[in-house]
Design a protein around this nucleic acid. Structure first.
Lengths: 327, 327
DNA sequence: TTGAAAGCGCTAACAA
DNA sequence: TTGTTAGCGCTTTCAA
């Protein structure tokens, strides 16, 4: 712990208040005393006690960020962008990991409240009415990202439109059989899956609008085991559209392991546009999810709320197609 | 902000001290008053004010973690393991990103100090004597991970041994030409590169012990452009050993782009063993860097230091080979 | 079994 | 231009 302002006051033979005036560059102090005080402060490496000042003012210049994990590039990009934004604004970010655990998510929120954060940005895993009520009761700026949270401002990608973009691309290329793989959907009702279900909705909507299309929505846990029969039973080369690149890659791997060529027995398309796709010899197509842009927009939104300014209740960013050639 | 202990005292017609006894399960209070107080506290959702209690005790039950970024799987694994460990111990983790920026690293340390953390775990980017002195002056438990920091306990992988393991494997398979690619080395002297240089040292040491081997240490920024000539000029199929999987993948990509087959024109080996390698049709070999284990060991070490117990100054974890088959 | 009082270091309103 | 004073909410020591 460094020297305190009271100690400086004693050393300089002035009052605590005068020291404050010098330290905070406030008016009403002679240049001479100011210089003397700043001299001592500098020499002893004075740093204001963050806890004391926060306790006194009730404000902390800190925000909380809660995401599922840090492995998924989606989340690291989100977190990095937010952290960068707030660092520039002189605000500290508390980065938290919920591990998709609703109890942990609640505990984290409590910890952040304990730390008197000025606001919270989260990718919610819970979306129960109870949870929302709890959050609302905090009376604190909160922004939901990627997964919606009823009653709170939301920033995310336009998943439904993105899924339709992907389907349209399949269609334009002549595909009339396209399956949509979305394993998380089997947990629908127990956790917040708004992003995933919007993607599935986009697919289903396109299928409804194009009755000549064939294909099914696959959400079972054994989707990998079903790939073999899906591919061999298909009368024409099918499209396989996955709700996330990670599923797409696992399917691709399975196809290779079966001894088949992933790009001749079907056409794969993922969602998210993770960077690693670049490393694959035959880059699969993917719908880009603009995580960084979402992070920055969400940070900006929270910042506005913290300053008491009105904000949009919903901000949807486009999810464009990245084709096989990377463009 | 929730109700305060003083408010509870007033409501229960007891003193602030008595409320504390009830809340903290301290002796010297009748069961009846305790029940009454806990009842009110529960009903109003009392939560102790973290800032006030920390200010008063000088302890925070929080630690700081500083890593370069969150994109690299190495760091996300490290951070996840540490966070998990401390969460179990009821300690909050401040996760920070230095972006390999030495000024930022210093600011982050100051921010953590301001928050009165009980200790700091970091992958240091700076290792100047000045920086170490500054850290030492804090008089706070500090553990360095992956990159060494003179004078502080260190937990990391045994990079030199890992590099020799890789070289021995090349040797056993009959390779007599092996190049080592380590682009970061060109920044040697300006930043902390101990992990990377230990890997290079392991390579050089092996080369010295085996004079019949050929190969060079490549650390220039244009390593990618040199691949073509290296491969075409080589009299025998060369080994290309990279100090990190990411470089290895970029080289692999370049080879594919040149229209060559990466596994017939050379043998690639990386370092880190990132999970993504599993997704490649022909999985390249890699030396595994045990990031999670390092994180956990480092967390345990810091925990010991916080409790004033003696710790090892150095903890080296093995870096085993993961061959092409994934084993 | 209960309570009073001082202190952690800073903020902020008010006086001199 | 400078100083006094009363908080912020909790911890801790000492007294009743």
């Amino acid at each position: 712990m460094s020297i305190t302002a009271a100690e400086i006051a004693k050393m300089c033979n002035v009052s605590r208040t005068t020291v404050d005036r010098a330290l905070k560059n406030k008016p009403g102090i002679s240049e001479e005393t100011r210089a003397r005080i700043l001299g001592i402060a500098g020499r002893y490496g004075y740093r204001p006690n963050y806890l004391a000042s926060s306790l006194s003012t009730g404000r902390t210049r800190a925000v909380g960020i809660i995401v599922f994990d840090l492995y998924n590039q989606h989340f690291s990009a989100l977190v990095s962008a937010i952290e960068r934004y707030f660092t520039q604004a002189g605000i500290f970010s508390y980065i938290c990991i919920s591990r998709k655990d609703q109890a942990r998510e609640r505990n984290l929120i409590d910890s952040l409240i304990d730390r008197l954060v000025d606001g919270i940005l989260l990718v919610p895993i819970n979306n129960s009415a109870d949870f929302c009520a709890h959050l609302r009761g905090l009376n604190l700026p909160v922004v939901a990202m990627s997964n919606r949270l009823p009653g709170f401002p939301f920033v995310g990608g336009d998943n439904a439109a993105g899924a339709r973009t992907g389907m349209q691309n399949f269609y334009d290329l002549g595909y009339r059989t396209v399956h949509f793989v979305c394993p998380p959907l089997r947990r629908l009702g127990t956790e917040n899956l708004s992003a995933q279900s919007e993607r599935a909705d986009g697919y289903l909507q396109f299928m409804r609008e194009h009755p000549e299309m064939r294909g099914e929505l696959i959400s079972s846990a054994d989707y990998l085991d079903r790939i073999e029969s899906i591919l061999s039973d298909s009368p024409e080369k099918p499209g396989i559209f996955c709700s996330s690149d990670l599923f797409m890659l696992s399917i691709r791997k399975r196809i290779v392991d079966l001894g088949w060529d992933p790009s001749s027995c079907c056409r794969l398309m993922g969602f998210d546009g993770i960077e690693f796709l670049d490393q694959l010899s035959q880059r699969p197509a993917s719908i880009f999810y603009p995580a960084e842009a979402i992070g920055e927009a969400a940070a900006r939104t929270l910042d506005e709320m913290i300053h008491g300014r009105p904000v949009e209740q919903q901000r949807l960013l486009p999810c464009p197609l990245i084709a096989e050639n990377g463009r």
